[in-house]
């Protein structure tokens, strides 16, 4: 049941991505409406699939094999779509939809269509609250930072067009630089908050399982670097008033470091699964 729902949701996301990309080619309002509706329907089905899978998870524990690595990415995709729809409702940013929808499909396909290997979880973490909070916070933070990354890329492209004085075809449909900068920064702050929580609870979970609060592994190193970079970014904004291009570049760099942390998670050896799922 849950698998069928996810597959239908993935189909809706793909159709939504096609609608948004179609809008880039031909700016018909019905493409945007179709894209929004499809993403929303996809999100509902996607969330329903989590509810359908919920029973097994409650019984087996959050850190059990039921909760496989692929599902983390699936949850991340759902948060990104939900975040985008909320932003779009408030600020009307269809151009961001043209980034979010394909991104969602790109995350969902490997997460669901490729069989992910089960990771053995340390028995002491099976019912760990710290691990549950860690995974939730990390996913929410990554979703917020993924959206901030998308807006940062959009900012850099728009700013380049304005500076070069040769606006492209899509220029008229892009939001103002001020709006992209403001919303991108807010998302970066939220991402930073969740990332902080994820690192703290991850450290707790690590101590519960291995007694080592801060094991040295690529994932931890990348996550700490990304956190430090976002902390510096927020500091520079608050103290020196940094904004615009340099902030966008820092957000892009921070998100790439975070991708490094996820790469660390995926490449971790199966026996290091305590770390892997944190």
């Amino acid at each position: 049941m849950a698998t069928a729902l996810v597959h239908i949701a993935l189909f809706a996301y793909t159709a939504g991505a096609v609608a948004f990309l179609g809008w880039l080619v031909r700016p018909l309002p019905r493409f945007v409406t179709a894209g929004r509706v499809l993403l929303f329907v996809g999100l509902l089905l996607h969330l329903a699939s989590f509810v359908a899978a919920h029973n097994g998870l409650t019984e087996a524990g959050f850190g059990s094999d039921v909760w496989r690595g692929g599902q983390l990415f699936s949850l991340l995709a759902a948060f990104v779509v939900a975040g985008y729809l909320a932003l779009d409702l408030r600020y009307r940013m269809p151009v961001a939809g043209a980034f979010v929808a394909p991104f969602t499909v790109a995350v969902m396909v490997p997460a669901h269509l490729v069989q992910s290997r089960a990771r053995a979880i340390a028995p002491e973490l099976t019912h760990s609250v710290a691990l549950a909070v860690h995974v939730s916070a990390a996913t929410l933070g990554t979703a917020a930072l993924a959206l901030a990354f998308g807006l940062a890329v959009l900012y850099l492209a728009s700013e380049k067009q304005l500076k070069s004085k040769h606006p492209g075809r899509l220029f008229a449909r892009q939001p103002s630089l001020e709006l992209i900068d403001r919303v991108g920064y807010q998302l970066a702050v939220w991402g930073f908050v969740f990332l902080s929580l994820a690192i703290a609870t991850g450290s707790l979970a690590s101590r519960e399982s291995s007694g080592n609060a801060l094991p040295f592994a690529p994932k931890e190193a990348f996550a700490i670097l990304a956190w430090a970079l976002f902390a510096a970014l927020i500091q520079a904004r608050l103290v020196a008033g940094w904004r615009g291009r340099r902030v966008a570049i820092l957000v892009v760099a921070g998100f790439l470091l975070l991708i490094g942390a996820y790469a660390g998670l995926l490449t971790a050896a199966p026996h290091a699964s305590v770390v892997a799922l944190r």
């Binding site: 728009s158 304005l162 892009q174 939001p175 103002s176 630089l177 001020e178």
Partner: peptide, 9 residues
């Protein structure tokens, strides 16, 4: 229009 593109509202 360009001013609006930079500064928004």
């Amino acid at each position: 229009r360009l001013a609006r593109k930079v500064l928004g509202n």
